[in-house]
Amino acid sequence: MSDIDLRHLRSFLVVAEKRSITGAGAALHLTQQAVSTHVRQLERALGADLLVRTSRGVLLTAAGEELAAGGAAVVDDVDRLAARVRAVAGALTGTLRLACCPAATTLFAVDVAEALEASVPGLRVELKGVRSPRQERELLRDGRADAAFMWLPIGDAGLHTAVVRTDPRAVALSARHPLADRPALTLADLTDDPVVRPDVLASTEAERFWLGEPRPDGRPAPRGAVVPTVEDCLLDVGRGRGVWFAPRPLETLLPAGNVRWTEVTDGEPFDLAVVWNDHAPQPLVTRLIAEVRGLVGGDGRRDAA
């Protein structure tokens, strides 16, 4: 038995309702021959006679009665499914507002926006630049942004996250630091170095993570200065006032001649994530995550809801 063609089934159902091929053709705006052809092809597909033609119209066989009883539900199910698919496709239009902190996303934010707009006709991606993760979280929480790119943790259970890339932890040292020429370091090597940090992080949990706490010996990290921006961190590091932990890719975005970047082999890596709120259009967020992972090479194995 071959597959049933929905056009043929629809024609048969109208014939069954009208008890007339001519009447079905008028209702369907088809010729009588076209309707007859649909019914014959449906009979061949099912391997059963469905109609008996008479001078006054048609009668249904037992097989025809069975198909008429169940066929309408099949057509209705397909119609409802098509409507749901169209509704989901319709949700992939409009505007997606993305909050972006340049230090985390300069390398790919524009490419992601353009890729999304190219793959989803009618979509407009609006990039909203901010200066800090704290501002990103504020935009998400008050509804001025649908999603953002943020380094985890963010310390907010009310938001959802999906990891798009995991990067090794690095430390920025003054070029004059005794360990500046080492190819790699451990947290124990940096036990006595004060850690400077920018006043931009979104939570106490995030601050402790960026400090590299707890240390292997259980002690807290020595606190250095709190400075306004990540650029100020590098200025303090360059002057020998402390060290700064950050994801390794920031070495490319924040170069400095008097600073050396070195990987910290036992430091917990940094997860970059797409973060979104409950009101974000989920189909678009799903496409966003896929596009970012494709561009930056993330595998998402550390995802959290």
Rank of each mutant, 00 (worst) to 15 (best):
V200I: 15
A202I: 11
S203W: 00
R208F: 09
W210A: 11
G212P: 08
E213S: 01
E213L: 00
P216I: 13
D217H: 03
P220R: 04
P220C: 11
P220V: 09
P220E: 12
P222T: 15
G224I: 11
G224Q: 04
V226I: 12
V227H: 01
V227W: 00
D232W: 09
C233Y: 04
L235N: 07
D236T: 15
G238T: 08
G238A: 10
G240K: 00
V243D: 00
F245C: 02
F245T: 02
A246W: 15
R248V: 07
R248H: 10
L250W: 13
T252Q: 06
L253I: 14
P255K: 15
P255Q: 10
A256D: 07
G257I: 03
G257F: 09
N258M: 02
R260Y: 03
E263P: 09
V264Y: 01
P269L: 11
L272Q: 09
L272Y: 06
V274M: 00
V274W: 00
V274T: 00
N277W: 02
N277G: 10
D278M: 07
D278W: 13
D278P: 07
H279R: 02
H279M: 01
P281W: 13
P283K: 04
L284H: 04
V285I: 14
T286F: 03
T286D: 13
R287C: 01
R287Y: 02
R287K: 07
I289K: 03
A290N: 08
A290G: 06
V292Q: 03
L295E: 13
L295G: 00
L295F: 08
G298R: 05
